[in-house]
């Protein structure tokens, strides 16, 4: 088989124009699916699911806290891998995805920390404690902030992209630390409810809406990533003829 033939899909995938045109068609479906999943999951989790025997209704914060944390961590891998692909293959689109992933990841990490703090008050008795899980999550937030900040310290896009990719890759060390922090250190934070192997330590009636929320948050993440990436493409490909054509063909907005 021809080597070039095998890689054409890869480079086509890396074309901002192809991405922009494809996602145009996906967006409405993704938006509807995201909204449906999040509304279903929230109504189910907040109003229908039973409360926890010990924690009562405050346990319902899990339906925001766990999905936000899970996707914030997965989003870091997406950002770092995009950065690595950009560094190695010099694909512009993957740098654009890396940049787009940073604000979304930061926002989700922030949600995880804030909902965790609010949940901590009625259950543990404190909003904040410097335990390994919470501190490593705070470091994740700073890493995301670092990648965002790097874009503003450079006038040169290419240099900013490379620096952002390097920082994302260095920070990747933190992600497994967050996962394992509850096992490695004496933490106030309880171990994971959802396990890689074995059944979740949660009643099925409570677990089902959590699954819906996690899928909903992944769906939301893809939606936000596509929206940010499309804006980024227009901002950086302003000289491309297809972009000019796209803008001049737009119906005038009033």
């Amino acid at each position: 088989m021809n080597f070039n033939l095998q890689w054409t899909w890869f480079h086509r995938l890396g074309s901002p124009r192809w991405f922009y045109q494809q996602t145009q068609r996906w967006l409405p479906w993704l938006a509807v699916a995201t909204l449906a999943l999040l509304v279903t999951g929230l109504v189910w989790g907040l109003a229908i699911a039973p409360p926890d025997a010990k924690q009562g209704n405050s346990f319902r914060i899990i339906y925001l806290h766990v999905p936000a944390s899970v996707v914030a961590l997965a989003g870091y891998y997406i950002m770092a891998i995009s950065g690595a692909v950009g560094l190695i293959w010099r694909i512009k689109l993957s740098f654009m995805l890396m940049r787009s992933a940073a604000p979304i990841g930061a926002a989700l990490t922030f949600i995880a920390l804030v909902t965790g703090a609010i949940w901590g008050k009625p259950t543990w008795g404190t909003y904040w404690v410097w335990d390994a899980r919470i501190t490593s999550m705070l470091i994740l937030l700073f890493l995301y902030f670092g990648v965002i900040a790097l874009r503003h310290t450079y006038s040169n896009n290419e240099a900013a992209d490379k620096a952002g990719a390097v920082l994302s890759l260095v920070g990747m060390v933190n992600v497994p630390i967050i996962y394992k922090s509850v096992d490695w250190w004496q933490t106030l934070h309880q171990p994971a409810t959802i396990k890689f192997t074995g059944a979740p330590s949660m009643h099925p009636d409570m677990f089902a809406p959590l699954v819906v929320m996690i899928i909903g948050f992944y769906s939301f993440y893809s939606l936000a990533l596509i929206l940010f990436a499309r804006a980024e493409i227009l901002r950086r490909e302003y000289r491309a003829s297809w972009v000019k054509q796209l803008v001049s063909n737009q119906p005038a907005e009033k």
Binding site: P50, P51, D52, A53, K54, Q55, F59, I62, T123, W124, G125, T126, V129, L188, Q190, P191, A192, T193, S201, M202, H203, D205, M206
Partner: peptide, 18 residues
């Protein structure tokens, strides 16, 4: 100066716990 409660990762509805 501070007492915190630690809880486990198990979640059960009250009826089931009863």
């Amino acid at each position: 100066t501070q007492v915190l409660a630690k809880h486990d990762e198990n979640y059960t509805p009250p009826e089931v716990a009863d």
